[in-house]
Simulated assay, not measured.
Amino acid sequence: MPLIAETCVARHTGDRKEQQDRVALFAHPTETGTLLAVLADGMGGHSGGAMAAEQVTIKAKQNFEAFQPAHETGRHLLQSIVDEAHVVIKLTRFTSEQDPHSTAVVFLMQPGKAAWAHCGDSRLYHFRGREPCFRTQDHSLVGEMLRKGRLDEAGALNHPQRNVLLSCLGSEREPRVEYGETDTLMAGDSFLLCSDGLWSYFSDDELGLVVDNHRPREAAQLLIDLARSRAGGYGDNISLALIKLSDPKSSPRPAFIG
């Protein structure tokens, strides 16, 4: 049965002087029911991070528009976006004075299935109703400490080195990229892509509750407002993309039909 996807993308500069996050959502030019969401959190001094994040979104748009599902897999598309963005960001180091790097989360939805790739500490969440089904694991020092049992979730949120990344695009070392997929999409599923400027202030359960109880635009505004309040004047850039799936019979105002 076809599902309806209602979507929203949003950003806020937070308490920073410059917005270095980038986020975008694209519908495929010819393939019905196929969309791509991409989010990148840039790093690298004044304008350097913005440049790196912009390269991720540009490469995502270019490769997605050329994507032919009959001849290539979703995994191949995702890998090409991340790998090529990494190379482009590295090359910009030779033509500028900045040292650009970026995280990346790329989410591909096709009829009946979804796939994603991520590098760094920007996240993708999959909720079914309000219940968390899946969350990407951060490629960060704190994330590694969590996986090894040296730190709990509460300690991770306040750890002084929580922003230290172990992998990102544009570094000399080859990036660590992880992939995931599901072929079981159903009404009530939601996918949230977000930078650490958002997720740092919420538990998984809190995010699931807000996403489930509100339409995407309302959920995005509420999450940003809460993150800004909890940051206490020290908030990072915020970016998010939200995709909510529903039954066509119960959705009054569809944003995307797939």
Score class of each variant (00 low, 15 high):
residue 1 M to D: 11
residue 2 P to G: 05
residue 4 I to W: 02
residue 5 A to Q: 01
residue 10 A to K: 10
residue 13 T to Q: 10
residue 18 E to S: 12
residue 23 V to S: 00
residue 23 V to L: 00
residue 25 L to R: 10
residue 25 L to P: 01
residue 26 F to D: 07
residue 27 A to G: 07
residue 29 P to Q: 05
residue 29 P to A: 05
residue 33 G to M: 04
residue 35 L to A: 08
residue 35 L to K: 02
residue 42 G to L: 03
residue 44 G to Y: 00
residue 54 E to N: 10
residue 55 Q to L: 13
residue 58 I to D: 12
residue 58 I to C: 11
residue 60 A to G: 03
residue 62 Q to I: 12
residue 62 Q to L: 13
residue 66 A to N: 13
residue 67 F to E: 06
residue 70 A to Y: 03
residue 71 H to V: 07
residue 73 T to M: 00
residue 73 T to K: 02
residue 75 R to W: 06
residue 85 A to G: 07
residue 87 V to F: 09
residue 88 V to Q: 14
residue 88 V to Y: 08
residue 92 T to L: 09
residue 105 V to L: 00
residue 105 V to Y: 02
residue 106 V to G: 01
residue 108 L to P: 00
residue 112 G to I: 02
residue 120 G to A: 14
residue 121 D to A: 11
residue 127 F to T: 08
residue 128 R to E: 09
residue 131 E to L: 14
residue 133 C to Q: 15
residue 139 H to D: 10
residue 139 H to K: 03
residue 140 S to H: 02
residue 140 S to N: 04
residue 141 L to P: 00
residue 141 L to Q: 07
residue 145 M to K: 10
residue 151 L to W: 04
residue 151 L to N: 05
residue 153 E to Y: 12
residue 157 L to I: 14
residue 157 L to G: 06
residue 158 N to A: 11
residue 161 Q to H: 13
residue 163 N to F: 09
residue 171 S to A: 15
residue 174 E to N: 14
residue 177 V to Y: 00
residue 182 T to L: 00
residue 184 T to G: 00
residue 185 L to R: 02
residue 187 A to N: 02
residue 190 S to T: 09
residue 191 F to K: 02
residue 192 L to K: 11
residue 198 L to M: 13
residue 216 P to C: 08
residue 217 R to K: 13
residue 217 R to I: 12
residue 218 E to H: 11
residue 218 E to P: 04
residue 220 A to D: 06
residue 223 L to V: 14
residue 226 L to W: 12
residue 231 A to T: 07
residue 231 A to Y: 01
residue 236 D to P: 06
residue 237 N to E: 05
residue 238 I to N: 03
residue 240 L to Y: 01
residue 243 I to M: 03
residue 243 I to N: 01
residue 246 S to D: 15
residue 250 S to Q: 15
residue 258 G to N: 06
